[in-house]
Amino acid sequence: MIPQDIGFLGHELYSTSLGPVTPGNLIKFVLVLSISIILLRVLTIYLRRVLKDRVSKDVGEPILKLLYYGTLVIVFISILPLIGIDPSGFMLAGGVAGIVIGFATQNIVGNLVSGSFLMFERPIKIGDQVEVNGISGFVTDIRIISTYIRTHDGLLVRIPNQQVFTTNITNTVGHPVRRFEYTIRIRYSDDASAAIWLINDYIDKEPFALRNPTPSVFVNDLGESSVNIIVRIWAPVSEWFGLKTSLLLNIKKILEENGIEISYPQRVLHIKSEPEKIQHVIEEPKEQQFIENEPVLNFEERVVN
């Protein structure tokens, strides 16, 4: 009974130029493909663990994806004869079919091609802090079809690669250092030179405020109610935000400790006192007022009478 059951695997299902295709061939095709996928997955998981500490994620992930999909395509093409398809014929047919499929799957192919360019040109990398098409956040993954971004408030946004590739990308960590700027307004009565010295001294003690490019502290404007000092500091991109959010408060404290205060909006009024003129001005309206009000007063008198 058993040999009879297994015998159906040798029956011809259909015939091609490469010979007859049997259920056994089909099972082999599926098995080889399945085992290849499983082995490749295990291999990529293993390599991901091995490379974790040695290679950064933005370099390791594209390599692993290239290895996974590249090997899978090679395995798939090499086992096509099992199901009676000649890979060389498939390639020729692919030329015509490619045009048809290309039109039908224009967006998917566009995203695929854009994804490949993103992986090789690398305007953004996994872990980068970017703004793409108005969406700001960290790049969590760059896949074949789409890019995943975790926004600053923790949302996951999937952007098609075509959109990423064709739109403006702002990579805030694209360069090793980044600058920030404060405007500090002090009173006119304070010593601006002393304030600049104090700020420079504090910046010099702050480790992440870079020594080169040199920070610049200068009086930029004599405002309506304050002397405006501009402070420009460069910091490593990894420390930029932390430094920017902590430094201003500390500068304020240091200035206040040294008697220099942040200016409030104010207006100085100069009042001139000229007693004679004032007396004249005060008396004059009284006379005029009496003349103007005379009919009214007379009216009252008339009423009383």
């Binding site: 250092v177 010099d204 460069w234």
Partner: peptide
């Protein structure tokens, strides 16, 4: 203290 060696 940190510094940058090279271009921005």
């Amino acid at each position: 203290k940190f510094t940058l060696y090279g271009e921005v």
